[in-house]
Amino acid sequence: MSVKTTLFAAATAAFAFALPALAGDIMVQDPYARASTAMSKSGAAFMVLMNEGDQDDRLIGASSDVAMRVELHTHKDNGQGVMSMVKVEEGFPIPAHGSHALARGGDHVMLMGLTHPLVQGEVIKITLTFEKAGEMTVEVPVDLERAPEGAMQMQHQHGQMKMSN
């Protein structure tokens, strides 16, 4: 394969990941997955679900061949300031002409019993099931380096800790 062909293939693949996935009126933007360590038996996927239609919809399930079980999860405060991860049986609503973010520390797609480690730069497939739009298979890049949105950064400055966004 020539250098020109290789570069064209790489550019085409990068462009494909930049495009949103569509099913009915539902569009998925900025999907990515991560695992906490190379030895992790679980991982999570995050994305923004956008509903361009006139009717509310709901993400009701997900599946992937990279995990033995895939569930919809969120984090809930137990009332004592401790956050726990819990399965969301009813799924996630996506309002008409609105969106629902699946983000770290909140709602997400949980990949349990990984069949292999999630490797930086790899692309996994996750099939999302919507109440009205049906099924959509999304190609999800593994990004183990991405910092959460709005993450607090610790900076050491003259012997003091300073918090900044």
Rank of each mutant, 00 (worst) to 15 (best):
D25P: 04
I26G: 05
M27F: 09
M27D: 02
V28L: 07
V28K: 06
V28Q: 09
Q29N: 09
Q29G: 12
D30A: 08
P31A: 14
Y32V: 13
A33Y: 09
R34T: 14
A35V: 03
A35Y: 08
S36C: 02
S36W: 10
T37G: 14
T37M: 12
T37C: 13
T37D: 15
T37S: 15
A38C: 07
A38G: 13
M39K: 14
S40T: 11
S40Y: 11
S40W: 10
K41P: 06
K41Y: 10
S42E: 15
G43V: 08
G43S: 07
G43Q: 11
A44V: 00
A44R: 09
A44P: 03
A44T: 01
A45M: 15
F46G: 01
F46E: 12
V48W: 01
V48G: 00
V48E: 00
V48K: 09
L49P: 00
L49W: 10
M50G: 01
M50V: 14
N51W: 04
N51P: 06
N51D: 04
N51F: 03
N51I: 01
E52L: 05
E52A: 07
E52T: 04
E52I: 00
G53I: 05
G53Q: 00
G53T: 01
D54L: 03
D54K: 02
Q55K: 12
Q55I: 00
Q55T: 04
Q55F: 02
D56R: 02
D56P: 00
D56Y: 05
D57H: 06
D57E: 03
